[in-house]
Nucleic acid binder design. Sequence first.
DNA 1: ATACTACGATGGACGAAGTCCAAGTCAATA
DNA 2: TATTGACTTGGACTTCGTCCATCGTAGTAT
Lengths: 138, 138
Amino acid sequence: MSDLLARLRDRGWRLTAQRRVVAEVLDGEHVHLTADDVLERATARLPEISRATVYNTLGELVLLGEVIEVATDGRAKRYDPNAHRPHHHLVCSRCGTIRDVRPAGDPLADLPAGERFGFTLSGVEMTYRGVCPDCAGG
Amino acid sequence: MSDLLARLRDRGWRLTAQRRVVAEVLDGEHVHLTADDVLERATARLPEISRATVYNTLGELVLLGEVIEVATDGRAKRYDPNAHRPHHHLVCSRCGTIRDVRPAGDPLADLPAGERFGFTLSGVEMTYRGVCPDCAGG
DNA sequence: ATACTACGATGGACGAAGTCCAAGTCAATA
DNA sequence: TATTGACTTGGACTTCGTCCATCGTAGTAT
Ligand SMILES: [Mn+2]
Ligand SMILES: [Mn+2]
Ligand SMILES: [Zn+2]
Ligand SMILES: [Zn+2]
């Protein structure tokens, strides 16, 4: 995490209180916050931060490859700091909780040539759906 | 397609000109239109149709399992009439074209128990990304 | 330490996508 | 052909996100 701030400084980022707070809020495992979640938590630490700055900072982190945008539903995008180890997502259909998962196998290789329509493939996103233990009443 | 209208009538649907037109517009292979696309094409056939009716009808078709909602990006949802044979999607990163694809293997089975976090799995969506032949300049 | 300045922050207007509602219309039935 | 409840309509509203003119400040130079 302070690694993150160091990387950003190296890339010429001006280290402002706002950017620091957004980076702090995004720290952790299985973190998939909406921009408004980030704004809310950032505001708790730095009351005068603005919505525009949260969006700006998130957008920059995405461009730098430090954060991944996840769109598991038609609602607000989620921002995922776990950008350095590729993974997929498991989403609870009831409460929306999202977990990071790593399926076995190579899904890219599983797309036969006859099903590629001449595309040059670059990646694949998988969204597993299910019901989490809490929502199943276990 | 007229199968569709028959199924809908059987399920107690009132067969209006608007619903007929929406169903017609959604006919075909590799069809993934936004609600506004549907509205535009429906308006060409039935000028007085309203946006609300397009959304209402699409929503009903989704509930009935006749159409699938596809959210491949953070933009407008796409509506896919190919609901009866399960498939995944291949999306061009440049132009946004979407093709239906059927990867080999069973991606659900590829999620190890240790990666399921106690969830009861119900399905998985895969979005392959790449560049289509047209956009690659071939 | 102080001044400078370009980069970043701000808030509010704007836009895109989608939902909701009260009032009017019409498909199906008798 | 009369009836009626389901369907349609336009517009207001909500949510999510972008844009922009202006202000503030982090980093640098002196
Ligand atoms: Mn994740
Ligand atoms: Mn499809
Ligand atoms: Zn849950
Ligand atoms: Zn393309």
